[in-house]
Amino acid sequence: MNSSSIKYKIFAMIAFGILLYWFVIPAVLTHNVPDLAKAGKADKIPEIAYKAWDFYQKGRYVSPNTPPEALDKNGNQHLKNMIKYNAEIGVASAPIWYVSLEAPNYPKDAFPEGIPVYYHFDGFSGDVHEMNTINHFIGMDPMERGAPYLRAIAPYVLVLLAFSYVLFILYDWKWLNYIMWIAVALPVIFLGFYAYWLYWFGHHMHDWGAFKIKPFMPTVFGDGKVAQFTTHSYPTIGFWLLLAISVFTLLAILSKNKYLKAKKVQ
C-alpha cells in the first residue's frame, strides 16, 4: 500500500473522529432538547438524549442561577433535574465561541465570569436568558433571532459531512476532495456567520430599549464596550477543535492527491 494512501486515511480518520465525537453525536442525539424542555414537552425527549446531554455537560459552565438541586455532588448538570427545577438548558455539542458581559450590577462575587454565553453550531448555552435581558435593555433582539435556519439544519449538515469523510476514506473518487474543502473551511465559515449576525444585531436596534444607543458593530474578537457593559469575545474549545479538523483534513487532501497522482502514473 502506498505511504500517501496510509497517511490520508489516518489524517482523515483523526478529523472524522473529532467531528463525530464533539459535534455530530451530541448534536444528533440531543437535537431539539432545549426547545422541547422549554415548551414543556419533556416526554418527547428520548432516554438516550438524557444520557448524552448529561455526559457532554460534565465539567461545563454552570450558571449561578442554576438551582443547586439540579446538580449532582460534583456540580455537574443533569437534564432531568434541570427540567424538573426549570433551569436554563443549553445545547450539548462543543461550544465554539465565548462572549461575556461585565457590568457594575453583576458583581464579581456573584458572577465571577460576568454573564457568559457560548455559541455552538446548533444553538447556545450559558446565561442566555440573562444575556437576552441585557439585550432588551439596549433595544437588541434576543439571541434566538440569530441564524434560526442555520441552527436548525446544523445537525443534518454535520451528519452529511461525517458521511463524506467515510466516503473519502473508502473510495478514490476525486470529487470527494472538493467536498472535504468544506471541512477545511469550517473555522472561517463559522466566523463569517458569527460576524454577520453580530453586525445584524448591532444594526437592528429597537426604540423600546430603555437605553438608546446608535447602531454599532459588536466586537467579534477581543474586548469591547457597549453602553455601560464591558464585553469579551473569544474562541473556546470548539473553535480549536475546528482548527484541528481543518488542519488534519487539509493534510488528508494533500496526501490523497499525492496518492492519486502516483496511482495514475503506475
Rank of each mutant, 00 (worst) to 15 (best):
Met1Pro: 09
Met1Tyr: 04
Ser5Phe: 04
Lys7Gly: 01
Lys7Asn: 14
Ala12His: 04
Ile14Asp: 00
Phe16His: 02
Ile18Tyr: 00
Leu19Val: 00
Pro26Thr: 00
Leu29Ser: 02
Val33Cys: 02
Ala37Leu: 05
Pro46Leu: 02
Glu47Phe: 13
Ala52Leu: 00
Asp54His: 02
Asp54Pro: 00
Phe55Val: 02
Phe55His: 03
Arg60Glu: 05
Val62Glu: 10
Pro64His: 13
Thr66Val: 13
Glu69Thr: 10
Gln77Arg: 14
Lys84Trp: 09
Lys84Arg: 13
Tyr85Lys: 10
Tyr85Leu: 14
Tyr85Asn: 08
Ile96Leu: 04
Tyr98Arg: 06
Val99Met: 10
Val99Ile: 12
Leu101Met: 15
Tyr106Lys: 08
Lys108Arg: 09
Ala110Thr: 10
Ala110Ile: 13
Gly114Glu: 11
Tyr118Lys: 12
Tyr119Lys: 08
His120Asn: 04
Phe124His: 14
Ser125Glu: 04
Asp127Glu: 15
Val128Thr: 11
Val128Met: 06
His129Met: 14
Glu130Val: 14
Phe137Met: 15
Asp141Asn: 09
Pro142Cys: 06
Arg145Glu: 14
Leu150Phe: 15
Leu150Asn: 13
Arg151Leu: 03
Ala152Ser: 12
Pro155His: 07
Leu158Ser: 01
Leu158Arg: 00
Leu161Gly: 03
Phe163Ser: 07
Tyr165Gly: 00
Leu167Gln: 06
Leu167Lys: 05
Phe168Cys: 06
Phe168Arg: 03
Lys174Leu: 05
Leu176His: 05
Met180Lys: 00
Trp181Lys: 09
Ile182Tyr: 03
Pro187Leu: 11
Pro187Ser: 04
Val188Lys: 05
Phe193Trp: 12
Asp207Trp: 10
Gly209Val: 00
Gly209Asn: 00
Lys212Val: 13
Ile213Val: 05
Phe216Met: 15
Met217Asn: 09
Pro218Asp: 13
Phe221Glu: 15
Lys225Val: 07
Pro235Asn: 11
Trp240Glu: 01
Leu242Met: 14
Ala244Arg: 04
Ile245Met: 03
Val247Tyr: 05
Leu251Val: 02
Leu254Lys: 10
Lys256Leu: 05
Lys258Glu: 15
Tyr259Ile: 03
Tyr259Ser: 10
Leu260Met: 12
Lys263Glu: 10
Val265Lys: 07
Val265Ile: 15
Gln266His: 10
